[in-house]
Computed example of a mutant assay.
Amino acid sequence: MRGWGDIPHFIHQSAGTLRNGPLVQFLNNIDITIMNKPADYSASEMKQISKRYTTVANQINRHRTNELKNQTIIFNLSESFANPNRVPGVKLKNNPIPNIEKIKKRTTSGIMLSSGYGGGTANIEYMALTGFAMCNFAQTLSTPYTQLVPYLRHNPSIIQSFNYAIAIHPYSSKFYDRGIDYPKFGFNKFFYLGNKKAPIIHQKKIGANSYLSDETAYDNTLNQLSRHPQGQFINLITMQNHLPYNHLYHHISHYKATVPANGTIAAQVENYAMGIHYTDQAVAKFIKEIDNIDRPITLVFYGDHLPGIYRNSMKKDGLKLHETDYFIYSNPAAQRLGAKNLTKHNHYVGPNDFIAMTA
């Protein structure tokens, strides 16, 4: 099929149609197996499993007085956020993320293993929202956001645990078909660029970066926290550190990079480092703001994948090229209600672990 010019593209179905033509793109979607049917699968077996775990849940929750839906939970996917100093052969002159490293030391935190490198944002987001791991799907299902979510009558996710849920993304609604998927998940509102009913406000850019800043993303989140003081779920997807990484900022020499002789470009690493430095400042400011709000708020911050600027061997350094940063922070009001730091089994996690860890 590739010999005939077909390039399967599922990140954005309309983009795939423009690339391959409507007939070929239609055919690309026909032979998709979502999941291989397990042995002994049946309605009665699923009811038994549901009954078993309902009993376990009732046992766990019998002494709990707090409900998740009465709190504010923020899942913050930070675009391409990952500490460059973990990449073999890369070393920066200064630390671009001192605030986040301090936060990680006093919270539930560690390394998130990403299934993507240089891309795959929506798959990480899907795993975080649903608790489903991509490895459970058949290989023909490469992007659930465009190949699965739009066609299901019910999409189980953390959103259904709340009476009110919104998504904030300072970019287009069309990428990964989020404008179609978020209503299917049950979000009440989706704030994005171009939405007149739920617009992105406080718009700021940094240097020559064409994407809106992380400060913009957090300012819009704070605006929502003030407008809706009850419990809610917020899905916040940033864009500031998306590629490209050329000639974005001034003073990048502050993060002068030593890189291996494998094709990695130092200037790109330095521009990227300056970008996550601005993220570091915005996160610290945001946490100070939510600390001053006298109602329980928990923030799950995670990088979706590394930027695709490192030319290291995937065979040799593959694990390191899939390690991003995460932390789970509860403000003082949430801590007073009993929010605790996890101290075991939390160093390496997957995005599909965040729902359970948050609870």
Rank of each mutant, 00 (worst) to 15 (best):
R2I: 08
G3L: 13
I7Q: 08
F10K: 00
H12G: 02
S14R: 13
G16D: 02
L18W: 14
P22N: 09
N28H: 10
I30Y: 08
I34A: 07
A39C: 01
S42C: 04
S42A: 09
S44H: 12
M46D: 07
K47F: 08
Q48G: 07
K51D: 14
Y53N: 08
V56M: 11
A57D: 12
A57H: 12
N58V: 12
Q59G: 14
R62Y: 13
K69S: 14
Q71R: 06
T72N: 04
I74V: 08
L77P: 00
S78T: 11
S78C: 09
E79Q: 14
S80E: 10
S80P: 02
A82V: 05
N83A: 03
R86Y: 03
L92S: 02
P98C: 05
K102Q: 11
R106L: 05
G110I: 04
S115N: 09
G119C: 13
T121P: 09
N123W: 04
I124D: 09
M127N: 00
L129G: 03
T130N: 05
F132H: 01
A133H: 00
M134G: 02
C135F: 13
F137R: 01
Q139M: 06
Q139F: 09
S142I: 05
T143I: 04
T146E: 01
Y151F: 14
R153K: 13
S157Y: 02
I158Q: 01
I159A: 07
Q160P: 01
F162E: 02
F162A: 03
N163C: 07
A165T: 03
A165W: 03
H169C: 12
P170E: 04
S172Q: 14
S173Y: 11
G179N: 08
F185K: 07
G186D: 09
F190N: 07
F190M: 11
L193G: 08
P199I: 05
Q203M: 05
Q203V: 09
Q203Y: 06
K204E: 12
K205Q: 15
I206G: 02
L212F: 15
Y218A: 03
N220Q: 12
R227C: 07
R227P: 01
Q232H: 07
F233N: 00
I234Y: 00
T238C: 13
M239K: 06
N241M: 07
H242V: 10
Y245M: 08
Y245Q: 06
H247Q: 15
H250Y: 08
A257V: 06
T258P: 03
N262H: 11
I265F: 04
A267P: 02
V269F: 10
V269M: 11
E270I: 05
E270F: 06
I276R: 04
Y278V: 03
Y278F: 15
K288M: 07
K288L: 05
R295W: 05
D304G: 08
G308R: 12
S313D: 13
L319H: 14
H322M: 11
S330A: 14
N331M: 06
P332L: 08
L337N: 10
L337P: 03
A339P: 04
A339H: 02
N341Q: 11
K344G: 04
H345Q: 15
H347K: 13
H347A: 10
G350F: 01
N352I: 00
N352Y: 12
N352E: 09
F354C: 01
A356V: 04
T358I: 01
